[in-house]
Structure formats: structure tokens, C-alpha cells
């Protein structure tokens, strides 16, 4: 153990497609449809790559119910060295989740997380985790360059399409976007072996005094968008035309079919130039 850097990865057992009753808004969750989000899968892939480059070992942690062990077995099949489930009821606040995850990951040089969980998470767990571990944090990453042990250069997404490259020194907590990496497929032998592998279970410790406490959480509501309406002075027909844009002249869409990727790219660029997006 000593000397080999530990790379942690945190994954959340989450319903990938919960069933929402359209009339009552009640959410029905089913364990068969649970799994790891794309962002969590990408985090796992990065953790595996880092451990390979640094000759380290990967510890996968999930805070959740016993059914989450299925997810951790999938992690073991992809090459994770140790899998730990922290017994925690769903719906715990981010700070609690981070503190129980931190208990398992004290020795980790780097901890990888998805950028935010699928069940309308806020993406706060990685930040809380960095606070708990006293580690650097680099969140919302689109790219990682894994260098010598302990050295990382990462690319972070900023507003308005800008990017920022950061040199990160360990210990660090990273959160990555789903599209940043595709999780490798586990080999058949590893899948079979992982069926009997041990998933450690750590009991969640009693909640400490939290510095932050959610007072009231409102359910998600899409906000109405204010759009300028048609001039009320106009007659109904003209208002309808304005609303639907039916009489507005527009350029018909251009359909091009080509099997050649280079040609397709060139045509796209040409069109973007024609529209003025590229100069």
C-alpha cells in the first residue's frame, strides 16, 4: 500500500430515468433503472487512467443504499482495486455526503467526481469534499492531462464558451463533465469475477454540526420565459401571423448527403462562414 498513490472516485447510485406522474408530479424510482450517470462514469475512467499512469490504486466509493453495491461491482469489473459503500439514506445534504465520503478517502491523492448528479444535484459535493480533505478543487473539467505522479493539467469550462487550463497539485478533488471520457468496457472475466468480489461497507457516522443547513428546498420548476407578444392593436389575423411567423420569408434548409467526413466538415464550416459565425 505504502507509496502507491490512491485515486478515489465517487459515484452516485441514481435512477437514470425516474418515472414522474404527469398529473401529481410524484416521482417513482425503480432500482432496475438505476446506475451511474455519464459524468460519474467519466470520473471513473479518469481515475483508472490516472492510476495506470501513476501505478496507483483506485478506490470507488458510493454513499447509498445496499442496492448501490451493484454499481460498485461494475466498478470492480472495470479494474477498481477497492470498493466501499457508505450506508447513507438517500436525500442526505451535500455536506453530510461529502463528510462520509471523506472518511473513506483521507489518503487519496486525487478524488474524481462527476460534475453533478442526475437527480437535479447542485454539484456541491465535490466542493464540500475538497473542504473536508483540505485539498485543491478543480470543478467542471472537460479535459485532463495526466503527467508525472502528482502532476495534472486540467481544462475547465468557463462561461461563454471560454476555457481555462489549470495546473493542479495533489491532493485535489476534480469533477468532470460526462463527455470528457468514455468508460472502458469491463472484460467478461472481470465481470464474472466481480460477482463474488467484496464490497466493503462503512457505516455513516452520526451527522456532525454542519456549517450549512438547508432551511427549505423547493421542488424544481421550469421558469416561464417572457417573450414579447404581438401588438394587441393589430387584428387577430395579423397577431396570429406574428405569433406563428407563418408569413415570414426564410431560407429553406439545405440538405447535403455525403459519406466523406472531410467533405462534411468542410461543408459545415462553409455554411457557418456564410452565416457569419466564423470569420
Amino acid at each position: 500500500m505504502a507509496g502507491r498513490p490512491v485515486v478515489g472516485v465517487c459515484l452516485k447510485w441514481v435512477d437514470l430515468r425516474p418515472d414522474v406522474d404527469r398529473l401529481t408530479g410524484a416521482v417513482h424510482r425503480d432500482e432496475r433503472f438505476h446506475g451511474a450517470s455519464e459524468a460519474d462514469q467519466a470520473a471513473l475512467e479518469w481515475a483508472l487512467r490516472m492510476a495506470e499512469a501513476w501505478d496507483g490504486e483506485v478506490v470507488a466509493v458510493s454513499a447509498g443504499p445496499p442496492a448501490a453495491e451493484a454499481l460498485l461491482r461494475d466498478c470492480l469489473a472495470t479494474g477498481v482495486h477497492r470498493a466501499v459503500r457508505v450506508d447513507l439514506a438517500p436525500g442526505a445534504p451535500s455536506e453530510t455526503v461529502a463528510s462520509v465520503l471523506a472518511d473513506v478517502l483521507r489518503d487519496a491523492a486525487v478524488v474524481c467526481c462527476g460534475d453533478w448528479s442526475l437527480d437535479r444535484g447542485s454539484g456541491a459535493v465535490p466542493a464540500f469534499l475538497a473542504g473536508e480533505l483540505g485539498a485543491a478543487q478543480a470543478l467542471g473539467l472537460v479535459r485532463l492531462e495526466v503527467g508525472q505522479p502528482g502532476s495534472l493539467v486540467v481544462t475547465r469550462r468557463l462561461d461563454f464558451g471560454r476555457r481555462e487550463r489549470l495546473g493542479v497539485r495533489t491532493p485535489a478533488v476534480l469533477s468532470v463533465e460526462g463527455a470528457s471520457a468514455t468508460l472502458r468496457r469491463a472484460s467478461l472475466a472481470a465481470v464474472l469475477a466481480a460477482r463474488d468480489a467484496v464490497v466493503e461497507v462503512a457505516g455513516g457516522r452520526p451527522a456532525a454540526q454542519h456549517r450549512l443547513r438547508p432551511v427549505h428546498v423547493r421542488p424544481y420548476r421550469p421558469r416561464p420565459q417572457a417573450r414579447p407578444g404581438p401588438d394587441p392593436a393589430l387584428d387577430p389575423r395579423l397577431r396570429l401571423l406574428q405569433l406563428t411567423g407563418a408569413a415570414v420569408e426564410r431560407t429553406p434548409p439545405r440538405t447535403v448527403v455525403t459519406d466523406d467526413a472531410d467533405e462534411a466538415a468542410e461543408l459545415l464550416l462553409e455554411q457557418l462562414r456564410a452565416w457569419g459565425y466564423l470569420t
Binding site: 468496457r185 469491463a186 472484460s187 467478461l188 472475466a189 465481470v191
Partner: peptide
């Protein structure tokens, strides 16, 4: 043969 790496069964 399966679609997993080393996927022969």
C-alpha cells in the same frame, strides 16, 4: 463470443 473484451465464453 460476446462484445466484451476477452469476451469468449
Amino acid at each position: 463470443r460476446t462484445d466484451r473484451p476477452d469476451g469468449d465464453l
